[in-house]
Deep mutational scan, measured.
Amino acid sequence: MQIFVKTLTGKTITLEVEPSDTIENVKAKIQDKEGIPPDQQRLIFAGKQLEDGRTLSDYNIQKESTSHLVLR
């Protein structure tokens, strides 16, 4: 499924993911596309910070959901 990640600069990154993917996996995909190390990434969805060990389905992130990327 596709999800979108919006950066603070207003850029939207499109990612191909599975509901069973962990947040860690998603951060690795963002690193592949954008070159941002996962330890600098914070992903926010529905006002919550997403934890590495959880999956997209844990957070009820469905296709075409948009989460926000904040850099630390």
Rank of each mutant, 00 (worst) to 15 (best):
M1S: 03
M1V: 05
M1F: 15
Q2E: 09
Q2M: 12
I3D: 01
F4I: 11
V5T: 01
V5C: 03
K6G: 05
K6N: 07
K6W: 07
K6F: 07
T7D: 06
L8G: 12
L8D: 12
L8A: 13
L8W: 15
T9V: 08
T9E: 11
T9Y: 14
G10P: 02
G10H: 05
K11G: 08
K11S: 08
K11R: 11
L15S: 00
E16L: 13
E16F: 12
E18A: 13
E18K: 14
P19H: 06
S20L: 09
S20C: 12
D21I: 05
D21S: 07
T22S: 08
T22E: 03
I23Y: 01
I23S: 01
I23H: 00
E24V: 08
N25C: 12
V26P: 00
V26S: 00
V26L: 10
V26W: 01
V26E: 00
K27H: 02
A28G: 09
A28N: 10
K29S: 04
K29P: 00
I30E: 00
I30K: 00
Q31S: 13
D32W: 09
D32K: 13
D32G: 09
D32Y: 10
D32A: 14
K33H: 09
K33M: 12
E34N: 08
G35T: 03
G35L: 04
I36M: 05
P38Q: 12
P38C: 09
P38L: 13
D39V: 09
Q40L: 10
Q40H: 13
Q40K: 12
R42F: 13
R42Q: 13
L43F: 03
L43D: 00
L43W: 03
I44L: 11
I44P: 00
I44S: 11
I44H: 09
F45M: 06
F45A: 04
A46R: 14
A46E: 15
A46L: 13
G47C: 07
G47W: 04
G47I: 01
K48F: 09
L50Q: 01
E51Q: 10
E51M: 11
D52V: 05
D52N: 11
D52C: 06
G53C: 08
G53Y: 10
G53E: 10
T55Q: 06
T55N: 05
L56N: 01
S57I: 08
D58F: 13
D58K: 02
D58E: 09
Y59I: 04
Y59W: 02
N60F: 06
I61D: 01
Q62H: 14
K63R: 13
K63A: 15
E64M: 13
E64G: 15
S65F: 09
S65N: 09
S65W: 07
S65R: 07
T66P: 08
T66F: 09
S67T: 15
S67R: 11
H68T: 12
H68L: 14
H68S: 08
H68W: 14
V70T: 07
V70M: 11
L71S: 07
L71Q: 08
L71E: 07
L71R: 07
R72M: 15
R72G: 11
